Every structure is written in structure tokens, then in C-alpha cells.
Computed example of a mutant assay.
Amino acid sequence: MKIAQKKKVKICFGSDLLGPLYGYQTQEFRIRGKVQSAQEVLLSATVTPAEMNGLGDKLGQIKPGFIADLLMMKSNPLDDITILDEPESNILFVMKEGRIY
């Protein structure tokens, strides 16, 4: 991670752990938080993947005309990125297509 960051490599947050490994998926926030700022980690899970998939003009940000799902958290992940490691304890709700779930 340190080498990639130093070389300005664009890194997207991973989401490919399935089955019994799925529980380890969110540990990436904590691991990356040791090298990157919370803002850089969040951008790698939102803006960077949208850009890398050619959808930077439609996804990845909360802006007029963009498609977005939102998470309402108990606290600010910019203050402590590890709150995203325990979504069941820290996510209050998810808003998808304007509806709260």
C-alpha cells in the first residue's frame, strides 16, 4: 500500500470476498487506514471506482444528477475509518433510490 500510494497508483476498494471469507471484507478499511487517510480510503471506495469504470460523471459522489446510495453512520468515518469495519454496529440506515432501508 505504501509503495502504491507513493507511486500514485489508483487503488479501488475490494469487494470480492465471498462465502465464509465475507466477514473479513470490511477489514480492508482498517488495513488501508494504517497507510492512507480516512478521506483517501473513502475516495477509493466511491470516486475512484466510478472513474476507473468510466462512470465518474454519474457515480461516486453526492451531486445533482448523480446516482447515489447513502449510508447513515453513528459517527463520522472521516474521524475513524474503522467504524466501517463493523457495519452491523455502526450503520443506522441505507438510502437506496431515495428510500430508507
Rank of each mutant, 00 (worst) to 15 (best):
residue 9 V to K: 09
residue 13 F to T: 08
residue 29 F to T: 03
residue 76 N to D: 15
residue 101 Y to V: 11
residue 38 A to T: 04
residue 32 R to P: 03
residue 76 N to V: 08
residue 90 N to G: 08
residue 72 M to V: 15
residue 92 L to Y: 11
residue 11 I to E: 01
residue 50 A to D: 03
residue 45 A to C: 06
residue 87 P to H: 09
residue 41 V to P: 05
residue 27 Q to D: 15
residue 71 L to V: 05
residue 66 F to Y: 14
residue 32 R to L: 14
residue 48 T to M: 09
residue 57 D to S: 08
residue 24 Y to A: 15
residue 37 S to I: 02
residue 14 G to K: 01
residue 82 T to A: 11
residue 61 Q to W: 01
residue 62 I to G: 00
residue 73 M to H: 07
residue 95 M to K: 13
residue 49 P to L: 04
residue 46 T to L: 03
residue 64 P to F: 04
residue 66 F to S: 06
residue 87 P to K: 06
residue 19 G to D: 07
residue 8 K to L: 12
residue 57 D to T: 02
residue 1 M to Q: 08
residue 94 V to D: 02
residue 65 G to I: 05
residue 80 D to F: 08
residue 25 Q to A: 11
residue 37 S to Y: 04
residue 66 F to P: 02
residue 54 G to E: 06
residue 101 Y to A: 10
residue 50 A to W: 01
residue 56 G to N: 02
residue 48 T to P: 04
residue 78 L to W: 04
residue 93 F to I: 08
residue 39 Q to Y: 14
residue 44 S to C: 06
residue 5 Q to N: 15
residue 18 L to R: 13
residue 79 D to K: 15
residue 82 T to H: 03
residue 46 T to R: 00
residue 90 N to W: 08
residue 28 E to C: 05
residue 81 I to K: 01
residue 78 L to I: 05
residue 64 P to Y: 01
residue 35 V to C: 03
residue 23 G to D: 10
residue 13 F to Q: 09
residue 1 M to K: 00
residue 57 D to C: 02
residue 24 Y to F: 15
residue 8 K to T: 09
residue 50 A to C: 07
residue 22 Y to H: 14
residue 9 V to Q: 06
residue 47 V to R: 02
residue 41 V to H: 01
residue 35 V to N: 01
residue 13 F to A: 12
residue 81 I to L: 08
residue 79 D to F: 11
residue 5 Q to Y: 11
residue 22 Y to I: 15
residue 13 F to W: 12
residue 91 I to M: 07
residue 3 I to P: 00
residue 73 M to F: 12
residue 63 K to E: 14
residue 97 E to A: 15
residue 38 A to R: 01
residue 72 M to D: 12
residue 37 S to A: 05
residue 74 K to T: 15
residue 12 C to S: 14
residue 75 S to A: 13
residue 26 T to I: 00
residue 50 A to Q: 04
residue 12 C to H: 00
residue 101 Y to W: 10
residue 100 I to D: 09
residue 88 E to H: 13
residue 41 V to N: 01
residue 80 D to L: 09
residue 33 G to L: 04
residue 90 N to T: 10
residue 40 E to M: 04
residue 41 V to D: 01
residue 79 D to C: 12
residue 62 I to R: 00
residue 7 K to P: 06
residue 54 G to C: 06
residue 69 D to C: 10
residue 5 Q to P: 03
residue 12 C to D: 02
residue 85 D to M: 12
residue 7 K to Y: 14
residue 71 L to T: 03
residue 3 I to H: 00
residue 15 S to A: 15
residue 1 M to R: 03
residue 14 G to M: 06
residue 98 G to R: 10
residue 49 P to V: 04
residue 47 V to H: 02
residue 77 P to C: 09
residue 71 L to M: 09
residue 3 I to N: 11
residue 84 L to G: 04
residue 31 I to W: 10
residue 9 V to D: 03
residue 35 V to G: 02
residue 75 S to R: 13
residue 50 A to H: 03
residue 50 A to E: 05
residue 100 I to P: 04
residue 13 F to S: 07
residue 45 A to H: 03
residue 61 Q to H: 07
residue 88 E to V: 14
residue 33 G to N: 06
residue 46 T to K: 05
residue 88 E to C: 08
residue 92 L to D: 15
residue 25 Q to D: 00
residue 18 L to E: 10
residue 65 G to V: 00
residue 9 V to W: 10
residue 69 D to P: 05
